[in-house]
Amino acid sequence: MKPEHDSIIDIRGLSFFRGDRAIFDDVNISIPRGKVTAIMGPSGTGKTTLLKLIGGQLRPERGQILLEGTDIPKLGRRELFEARERMGMLFQSGALFTDMTVFENVAFPLRVHTALPDDMIRDVVLMKLQAVGLRGARDLMPSELSGGMARRVALARAIALDPDIVMYDEPFTGQDPIAMGVLVNLIRRLNQALGHTSIIVSHDIKETLGIADYIYLLSDGRVIAQGSPEELADIDSEQVRQFMQGLPDGPVPFHFKAPDYHQDLLQEH
């Protein structure tokens, strides 16, 4: 069950609450280095929250999030700033800065974290844009881009500093087939070419299974399954099967809690 390669991120005993609800309850996850790991589960299980916890935007109530031994929630400002240099995140909506051009957006992390001269920054930005196929769009404003293009630019920005970890928050949601295909292809190719670790948070089975090396299935704040795509297909669990096959009814019920149907109809009179 455990991955053979070493893990770059080790999450141990993670517990995170929002109000009374336990988003994560004593969760253990290991992200293998250099591979594409998918975190999947039904909507609202807090998958995005997990990325925010890894990135240090939120702090857990209990547990450790170890990035090669360093516990993220315990880091001070300076150390967190340096840790974030090694992470790149692609937000669901792209989250490009609307008052800057595409070029400036991709250059932003470089200007913040490095003191590179302008011509070197230009080279790096052009290379990143070339990798996502949008070098020609460098002078456009984000409002002039289509949704798919905006996400690709955001991806270029996320890899601007050649981070060790790239996190994707629901990258396939709401995309047309072509854009989806482009993105899937990019994620896989970049992972292989640049050798970084990819963490994808998604609930799109087909696309994710196609590129993931290892999958964690979350539900109700716990890991209910983990393994490679082949291993998951063989798991003998109703919950897992409902999710993987997209069955409408099962452990996650179709009917929202309601009184007895017969009674309800009759009571109308």
């Binding site: 990135g55 700033f81 909506s93 989250a95 932003f108 913040v112």
Partner: peptide, 17 residues
């Protein structure tokens, strides 16, 4: 508000600003 809704503020934080 729009920057918050489109996660621009969050991505600024992630980049470390």
């Amino acid at each position: 508000g729009l920057m918050k809704a489109t996660e621009q503020l969050a991505s600024l934080e992630m980049i470390g600003v």
